[in-house]
Amino acid sequence: MVIKVFVATVAGSTAIKKKQQEVVGFLEANRIDFEAKDIACNDDNRQWMRDNVPGEKKPQNGIPLPPQIFNEEQYCGDFESFFDAKEGNEIHVFFGLAPPPSSKEAELSSDLQNGEVPGEEHHISDSSPLIEEKDTPNETQADVVTNSTNSTEAAEEKQEEEAVTEEEDEAEEEQGEEDNES
């Protein structure tokens, strides 16, 4: 499958040029196969793009602006859709590509195939820890976030225990003062 990016090599708008460069640059940087299809110099490309952008994605004037992105014949979206997918770490889903094996998208896909529910809490037992605590460069972002979350939860629990202990101490002091007054 090849990603097709419809661009205008002769674009009067700086904003359009920047959007096109961002999409093409991203694809190049991530070594995703693509073809840049020029709509400024090729009437067939321009007509194909206009005919294949879904009606609900066309602007009011009916002429979609570049960049428009397709996976073969399947419409992926425009720049805004691309940007949202990139920010949401769902870029491979956006392009209709299989995620690389080490990505969160691949893990999510694997979990779904194994019948696990995304966001479902996993219980950690002493015999098979889900997360290894380690201080190595190989520590994943998920490990860091989970360890940080666990540390935060432990700190919050400790603060709650201290608050309860303080309240109990204050109650005992008040009781002692009342006993002394009587």
Rank of each mutant, 00 (worst) to 15 (best):
E167R: 08
A29L: 05
E72D: 07
P66M: 04
S110W: 10
D179R: 09
E153Y: 09
K18W: 11
G12Y: 07
A106N: 10
L65G: 09
L97H: 04
L97T: 00
N138C: 03
P129G: 05
A142Q: 14
T152E: 11
Y75H: 06
E168F: 02
A85W: 13
E35W: 10
G55W: 10
Q141R: 14
A11V: 15
K4G: 02
V53I: 05
E160H: 07
N138M: 09
M1C: 08
F83Q: 13
I32R: 07
G115S: 02
F70G: 06
V117Q: 12
K86L: 03
E107Q: 14
D44W: 07
Q20L: 06
E168H: 06
P67L: 02
E157Y: 10
D44F: 05
E157T: 06
E80L: 13
E166L: 06
M1N: 09
M49L: 00
D38L: 00
E105G: 00
Q141T: 13
N150L: 04
P67Q: 01
A154G: 04
N138V: 00
S127L: 14
G25A: 02
F26P: 00
T140I: 07
E167W: 06
N150C: 06
A29I: 00
H92C: 00
G55Y: 11
K37Q: 13
K86W: 10
V144L: 11
D51H: 06
T152S: 09
R50T: 13
T9Q: 13
G62M: 05
F34W: 11
G77C: 05
E153N: 15
E166C: 00
A36L: 01
A155E: 15
I131L: 04
R46M: 03
P66S: 02
F82I: 02
Y75T: 07
G115D: 12
T136L: 07
G115H: 14
E160D: 13
N30H: 14
P101V: 04
E139P: 01
A154F: 05
E167N: 06
E80Y: 14
R50A: 09
F95I: 02
E156W: 09
I63E: 11
I63P: 02
T140M: 00
E156Y: 13
F95T: 02
H122M: 08
E177D: 06
L130R: 13
D169Q: 12
N138G: 06
G96T: 12
E73L: 03
M1P: 12
N42M: 00
E153D: 14
F34I: 01
V2P: 04
D51T: 04
F95R: 00
H122Q: 11
N150M: 09
C76T: 07
E167F: 03
D126N: 15
Q68D: 07
A142E: 15
E174H: 07
N71R: 15
D84Q: 15
V7F: 05
E157K: 12
E121H: 11
A98V: 13
D143W: 08
S182A: 11
A15Y: 12
V5Q: 08
E116T: 11
N147F: 03
A106L: 05
N138H: 13
V164F: 01
G12A: 06
Y75I: 03
K4Q: 13
E174M: 01
F82R: 10
P66N: 03
E56P: 00
Q159M: 05
D51Q: 01
V53P: 07
I91A: 01
V10S: 15
I32F: 05
E35P: 05
P118E: 10
E35I: 04
E177H: 01
L130D: 12
S102C: 09
P137V: 12
T14H: 08
